[in-house]
Amino acid sequence: MSDTPVDAEEVRHVAELARVNLDEDEVEEFATQFADILDYFDALDEVPEVDAEPDLVNVMRSDEVRDCLDQSEALENASDAEDGFFKGPRVS
């Protein structure tokens, strides 16, 4: 059994953090499935700490003005716009 048990309350909490509403059936189903999946992920505990050189390097480009989408193209897929801006629901 996983040492990080997942119950319906935990699923609701994570769903709220992720901003995804769920119906009650989904909450129950996910709680059961997440318990199985997280139990499987727990085997990562056995992985040793690994000293690895990150093979990442910064890749820079010069800060020059280039062609890009114009405002109307950027708004083409928006459901609502006003004065050339995206229009969304009120924030509070």
Partner: peptide, 20 residues
């Protein structure tokens, strides 16, 4: 988020509720 592109439910409400 349903604002810039993608599905818009057309629902009223505050940002977080409509987003979810």
């Amino acid at each position: 988020d349903g604002v810039r592109y993608g599905l818009s439910t057309g629902k009223e409400g505050n940002w977080n509720d409509v987003y979810a």
